[in-house]
Nucleic acid binder design. Structure first.
Lengths: 181, 181
DNA sequence: TGTTGCATGTAAGGGGTTACATGATTGA
DNA sequence: TCAATCATGTAACCCCTTACATGCAACA
C-alpha cells in the first residue's frame, strides 16, 4: 500500500482533487514516484472509507461532481507512523543491468549504443537538475525539516548523485564494450 | 515481458532446470533481478510453447518429471535483438525518496534513524562487493565482452557506484534532519 | 526421526498500465 | 471548429508475491 502514502504526502501539504494529484505525480514527484488517474481515483475512495482523508464535493465540469480531498488527523497519524517505520528494500528490477549481465549474447556495438543513448538522456536530466538546485539553494526553507522544500532538496540531491553515478557507468560500459573488439 | 529475457540470459550460458534458475536468481542475479519459482515455471512453459527454449525430461525426485531447459536458436535471436533494442526507462518507485519528500510530516529523529539503518546496510553490502571485485579483477575474462564474467564485472561496478552514492546520500539526509532541530 | 535440498506445479490476490467512456469550459 | 484542459470514473490485462500442495533423497 505505498501509493496510499504517496498520496498522503501530497495531501499533507494542501488539499487536492484526484486530477491535481495525477498532475503533481507526473510533474513534481515523477523523479521517484508515479501513478495513473485510474489508480488514484479508486485509492482516494478507499482512503476516504478508511477515514484517512475527507472530501468536499462541488459541481465540476463534465457529468460528475468534483471532489476536493483533504487529509484528516487519522491520515496525519498514519503518515507520521509510516515515515518513522522500518524501511524494507524491495527487490530491484533494473533492465539496463540485466542487459549488461547478458552482454556475452549481444552485438557489442549495438549494446554500447544503448548505453550511450542512456548516458545522453542522463546528461540532459542532470542539466535540468542543476537549474532546479540553483533555485532551491537560495531558499532558506530548504534547510528547515518542517518545510516541504526540505524534502524537495533531499530528493533532488539524491537524483543528482544517482544520475551522475549511472551516467558515468553507462559511459564506462560503452567504452569497455567497444574496447573488446 | 522482461522475466522472459532474464531467463534467456541465464539459459544462454548453459541449460538449467526451473529450480536451478530460481536459485541463480536468488544467489547471483539478485543484485538487479529476482523472481519466485511460481513465476518461473509457467514462464518456462510459455517460452517452450513459443519455441525460445526446448527441454529434456528425466525422472526426478518427487512425483513429477524434472525438466532441463536449453535455449534454442530462436531464443538466441530473440535475446540478441532485445539486447540491442532501445531502452525505455520504467517509472521509478523509490520508497526511501518518497519518505524524504514527506519529511515535513515526520518526526525528524525517527526518519534520520531510518536513513542511518539503511546506510549501515549499504556499507556492509559495499564491503561484500569489494571482495567480489578483488576476485574478478584478476580474471582476464572480465575484459572480454564475449564472456559472462564481463557482464558480472559491469553489474558489480554499477552496484558499487550506486550503493556508494546512496550510502553517502543517506548519511547526509540524516545529518540534515538532525541539524534542523 | 526430523530437517534440508531437489524438484514441480496451482491459486488467490495486490499493484500497475492501457484502454474505454463521458462531458463542460476556454482559447486558437 | 478544433484542440487542450479540467474532471471522474470502469474494465481488461500483465506482472509479481504469498500461500497451498506434493514427494524423494541425503544427512544429522
Amino acid at each position: 500500500m505505498r501509493l496510499r502514502h504517496a498520496l498522503l504526502v501530497l495531501l499533507a501539504e494542501r488539499p487536492h482533487t484526484g486530477y491535481e494529484l495525477t498532475r503533481r505525480m507526473r510533474e513534481t514527484v515523477s523523479l521517484f514516484w508515479s501513478a495513473q488517474h485510474s489508480q488514484i481515483y479508486p485509492e482516494l475512495a478507499a482512503m476516504a472509507a478508511d477515514g484517512l482523508v475527507g472530501f468536499e464535493a462541488s459541481s465540476g465540469p463534465g457529468p460528475r461532481q468534483k471532489k476536493t480531498y483533504a487529509i484528516t488527523d487519522a491520515g496525519r497519524d498514519e503518515l507520521r507512523d509510516w515515515l518513522g517505520s522500518a524501511y524494507v528494500r524491495k527487490p530491484p528490477r533494473d533492465e539496463l543491468l540485466l542487459r549488461a549481465f547478458g552482454s556475452a549474447s549481444a552485438d557489442p556495438h549495438d549494446l554500447a549504443a544503448v548505453y550511450l543513448t542512456e548516458a545522453d538522456r542522463l546528461a540532459s536530466v542532470l542539466e535540468e537538475y542543476a537549474g532546479i538546485r540553483a533555485e532551491l539553494e537560495v531558499m532558506p526553507e530548504a534547510d528547515d525539516p518542517t518545510r516541504p522544500e526540505f524534502g524537495w532538496m533531499l530528493a533532488l540531491l539524491h537524483g543528482i548523485a544517482t544520475a551522475t553515478a549511472r551516467h558515468d557507468w553507462c559511459v564506462d560500459a560503452a567504452r569497455r564494450l567497444n574496447a573488446g573488439s
